[in-house]
């Protein structure tokens, strides 16, 4: 049905090689990320999981092009990343919609930037709004929507550009537990349709394991990959899998690592 016109083909290969990120100047520097290497295959769903302050958002911002790597390089489909671009869609944690634009205006934004005509913009925006279940809210302003609905607009707004990769920075972190679960299921449904590569930052173990094909567990700062966990549950996944024994086994393994890293971050010397 829709699959044909929304998918992006086999693009979205992210190659992060020996990424190092150092912030600050002179003696007051903070090393956020060190020797971080990660490759994704096109259409893969990868979660970056780690304690807060471990540099996972920094990695995401570097792929987005918001920050420039201190060392190492990031390549998406053969192109070295030097600046932000519409080929890498970003969904922020919250409050990233343009408050002065309606839902439709927000979703159309990327198309408008590409010079797509008004009529075509509208019809494409409608398709993506329907994909995230927001038909009928085109003319609402962001402040009139709940947090979950705002995030759906954010997802539609990024996807309308048909990005090679979708970058998500704790997109459901500010939502209540029930809405978060609903949004996770919605995201999987949307992803099954668009089949773009997803790099998903979270500190929620259940979320990472429920959504992703692979979970990259990160160390405390400076962030490195500590473990790459393959999550082999069949798709489509239902929320119930998080209560299965197989899920628990994986969760126990990841939890032990995350706890260890959190403890190390708290007790360790100042970076």
């Amino acid at each position: 049905m829709r699959g044909g016109d929304l998918t992006n083909g086999a693009t979205g290969r992210i190659e992060i090689t020996d990424l190092g990120m150092v912030f600050g100047r002179n003696s007051r520097t903070v090393e956020a990320v060190r020797r971080f290497t990660l490759m994704t295959t096109p259409g893969e769903f990868v979660a970056l999981l780690g304690p807060s302050g471990c540099g996972k958002t920094t990695v995401l911002n570097a792929v987005a092009g918001f920050v420039i790597p201190t060392v190492g390089r990031i390549v998406v489909d053969g192109e070295i990343i030097t600046q932000p671009g519409a080929d890498r869609g970003m969904v922020f944690q919250q409050h990233s919609l343009f408050p002065w634009k309606t839902v439709l205006g927000n979703v159309e934004f990327g198309l408008k930037m590409r010079g797509v005509g008004k009529k075509e913009r509208k019809s494409q925006a409608h398709a993506y709004l329907s994909l995230v279940g927001l038909t009928g809210f085109e003319h609402a302003y962001p402040r009139e929507l709940s947090g979950g609905m705002q995030q759906r607009v954010g997802i539609a707004r990024a996807l309308v550009n048909r990005p090679r990769v979708l970058l998500m920075d704790e997109p459901f972190g500010a939502l209540d537990a029930q809405t978060r679960l609903t949004m996770q299921e919605l995201l999987l449904g949307v992803w099954r349709e668009v089949r773009t590569t997803v790099l998903f930052v979270t500190h929620d173990i259940d979320e990472a394991l429920f959504l992703a094909d692979r979970v990259a567990v990160m160390t405390g700062r400076p962030g490195q990959i500590r473990d790459l966990v393959e999550v082999k549950f069949t798709r489509p996944r239902a929320a119930e899998i998080i209560a299965t024994p197989a899920f628990m086994v994986l969760k126990a393994r990841v939890l032990a690592q995350v706890r260890e890293e959190s403890a190390r971050t708290l007790s360790g010397p100042r970076p």
Partner: peptide
């Protein structure tokens, strides 16, 4: 156009306040 998976059952939380 068909509804995306899981979308149909999603309740709209916090629609424009009555």
């Amino acid at each position: 156009m068909a509804t995306a998976p899981n979308v149909g059952m999603v309740p709209f939380v916090g629609a424009p306040a009555a």
